[in-house]
Amino acid sequence: MALLTQTAVSLVAILALAGLAWWLKLGGAPRLDSAEAVARAAGEVEDGFAPVATSFDAEGASALARDGAGRIMVIKRHGNRFAGRVLGPGAGARPEVQPGEFNLVVDPGEPRFGKVFLTLPDAEAWADAINRVSGAQDA
């Protein structure tokens, strides 16, 4: 009987902790699913980065943001946070045709950061903008 009581109490405690975590909205994967979420993440990556244009991946795992100065930032999920880079010389982007997977590959030019794969409605426009920004800084 003691083992049954101990098991029941443990189960109630686990459920109570799970309920508390759910109520506090802890855990889970953060999403970039709105312009506000992208702006918040961009501001966390670089203090003062204020996007005037954003586009976020269909899955909410990555996004692009452009500020008033024309700088473009790529943001991706890294664990339960976001990491991003302002694109500069050496960065590039290319539209892809991967139905159901992604349609834009952004290479920030930093091997440790890695390429970012996005599914965007305006992939070609972003690819052109990224390639112009990175090319203009090479001159």
Rank of each mutant, 00 (worst) to 15 (best):
I130K: 05
A125Y: 06
K76H: 12
V52D: 13
D122I: 14
V52W: 14
A123R: 08
G114Q: 08
R112H: 12
I75P: 09
A93V: 00
V45C: 01
A127N: 06
R94Y: 09
S10C: 12
W22Q: 09
A41T: 03
V38Y: 07
R40L: 12
A13M: 08
N80V: 10
S34P: 08
D128R: 15
P111L: 12
Q6D: 11
R85Q: 09
Q137F: 14
G43T: 03
A2P: 07
A42F: 04
A91H: 04
A65P: 03
P95Q: 03
F49M: 05
E110L: 06
A35V: 07
P95L: 00
D107R: 10
A125P: 04
G90I: 06
L17A: 10
R71T: 07
A37W: 05
K25Q: 15
P121N: 09
G70I: 03
V86F: 00
D138P: 04
L3R: 02
L4K: 11
R132F: 13
P89Q: 15
A35T: 09
W126I: 04
A69N: 11
A18T: 03
V105I: 00
E46Q: 12
A83V: 09
L17M: 14
E101N: 06
A136V: 15
L11I: 02
G70H: 12
A53Y: 07
S62K: 01
F49T: 02
M73Q: 05
E101G: 00
A2K: 11
V116K: 14
G92T: 08
P95Y: 04
L104R: 01
F117A: 13
V12T: 10
Q137E: 12
D33F: 13
A58H: 14
A42V: 00
A21M: 14
N103M: 09
V12P: 02
E110M: 01
M73R: 04
T5N: 10
L26C: 12
A139C: 00
G68P: 12
L87D: 01
E124C: 15
L26W: 15
L120K: 02
I14R: 13
D128G: 08
V9R: 14
I75N: 08
V9G: 05
V106Q: 05
G43C: 01
L26R: 06
P111A: 13
A125C: 08
D57T: 08
N131I: 08
G90F: 08
G28K: 10
P99M: 04
A50P: 02
G27I: 02
D138E: 14
L17Y: 04
Q137D: 14
R77A: 15
G109Q: 06
A16P: 01
D33A: 14
I130F: 11
I14F: 10
A37S: 03
S134A: 09
W23G: 01
G60R: 01
R132S: 13
A53W: 11
P99F: 03
A91L: 02
E110V: 06
A16M: 02
I130W: 06
I72R: 10
A61H: 09
S34V: 10
P30M: 10
D107L: 03
V9S: 10
G84V: 09
I14N: 14
A61Y: 05
